[in-house]
Computed example of a mutant assay.
Amino acid sequence: MTGQRYTSFHPGKEWLDTSGKPIQAHGGSVMEVDGTYYWYGENKEFTTPGSGIWHWGVRCYSSTDLYNWTDEGVIIPPDEDDPTSPLSPQRGMDRPHILYNPHTEKFVCWIKVMSGSIQLSTTLVADSILGPYEIARRDFRPLGMYAGDFDLVVDPHDGKGYYIFERVHTELIVADLTDDYTDVTGYYSTHFHHGRPPFTREAPSHFHRAGREYLVTSGTTGYYPNVSEVASAATIHGPWEVVGDPHPDDDSRTSYRTQVSSVFKVPGKDLYIALGDRWLPDYDAHGSEAYDLFDEYFAQIEAGAPDTGMRELTVPDTSRARYVWLPIRFLDDGQVRIEWHDEWRLEDWV
């Protein structure tokens, strides 16, 4: 079967690869290597309600135009034999991020693995973006902290690496990476101290532009969509200043029913694309519903109720999740906008 040939983006619609199958790269990112784009993320093809399968490894696709994607296979396969492995399909592996290290000439992948409020990190290395990857450090706590959603950053000037992560249910941490990018040095800064979900900022998505650092984050409401927030800073360690909601025209207060997973700058253009997941394609409630649900849930925990884990608040069929890629617009007053387009083309942006 041959997939449809795309000449534009259709946010929220089913996106097929060149063989005609739905793309499985959730919580994903795009990077360019030697003129080819690679889109990788969580393979959720078997993650259906009741399956007991959280993921089926990290899948990767290649493209030369950002519209049409060829399946390159599962570049970090699940470990079906060891239930304690961070790559076991039953463990909550989420949000892989890959960096190229110019010093070691290695590709370095970080993953988080969830078990309720316990969230551990694992790093892997490879000679090629497509692998094979070998575990460098397994099930560790960066800085002695439980690390949740995160992003990885390389300074384009000196190649220094940074790890930006949600200290689970409390704040965001910006930590310096070791020279090999597989661990943190111990130097870090703390930001966005909001106490607990749903107010804690998660899903940090970083990008540089015009001498400024930017972060797009979401509130903490599991798979329910909520209001995004943009912050900017002169340096990656801050201080960070909140710019505001990049989706002010979205009356549903759900970031167009999307959570941004990463931001990709298109080479040769002043074009930044917010790569988002629509985890619940059939969900259309107002964003206040999720905030109220999670506020009540975590208020009960503060009062002494047991924490059964945010995962139990929703049991979605993430194998059906869609993608929402939208261009970012920058206003003269410093505001950042991610506006809705039913269809859009790279060619429409200078």
Rank of each mutant, 00 (worst) to 15 (best):
T7H: 14
F9C: 04
P11Y: 14
P11L: 09
G12I: 04
E14Q: 15
K21G: 00
P22K: 09
P22I: 09
A25D: 02
V30H: 04
V33N: 06
V33C: 07
G35P: 04
Y37H: 11
Y38Q: 09
G41K: 00
T48E: 10
G50T: 01
G50W: 01
W54Q: 14
Y61N: 05
S62V: 02
T64H: 15
D65H: 08
W69C: 03
T70K: 15
E72H: 04
P78M: 05
E80H: 12
E80Q: 11
Q90L: 03
Q90S: 14
R91T: 01
M93Q: 14
N101R: 07
T104E: 12
K106Y: 06
V108M: 01
C109T: 06
C109I: 03
W110V: 00
I111H: 03
I111G: 07
M114E: 15
M114Q: 11
Q119Y: 00
L120Q: 11
T122L: 02
T123E: 10
V125Y: 13
V125D: 10
A126F: 08
A126T: 06
D127G: 15
D127W: 04
S128R: 12
I135N: 06
A136F: 06
R137A: 12
D139F: 06
F140G: 05
P142A: 09
L143M: 07
M145P: 00
M145T: 01
H157D: 15
D158Q: 09
G159Y: 08
G161L: 12
Y163H: 12
F165P: 03
E166H: 02
R167F: 05
T170N: 13
L172H: 02
L172Q: 11
I173T: 15
I173S: 04
L177Y: 05
L177K: 05
T178Q: 04
D179Y: 12
T182S: 10
Y188A: 13
T190A: 14
H194L: 11
R196A: 11
P197T: 02
T200E: 10
R201V: 07
S205I: 03
F207R: 08
Y214D: 07
T217D: 02
T217E: 01
G219K: 02
Y223I: 01
Y224R: 05
P225I: 08
T235I: 02
T235S: 14
H237W: 03
H237A: 10
D250R: 05
S252P: 03
Q259S: 06
S261Y: 00
S262F: 02
S262C: 03
V266K: 08
P267R: 03
G268A: 12
K269M: 13
K269I: 12
D270I: 02
L271P: 08
I273D: 09
G276I: 10
G276S: 09
D277E: 12
R278K: 10
R278C: 04
L280T: 04
L280R: 02
A285T: 00
S288T: 11
E289N: 07
A290M: 09
Y291V: 13
D292L: 09
L293C: 02
L293E: 13
F294V: 13
D295K: 10
G304S: 02
A305K: 11
G309W: 08
D317K: 00
S319N: 05
R320I: 00
A321R: 13
A321C: 12
A321F: 02
L326I: 03
R329H: 15
D332P: 01
D332R: 13
G334T: 12
Q335R: 15
W340I: 01
D342N: 12
W344L: 11
W344H: 10
E347W: 04
V350N: 11
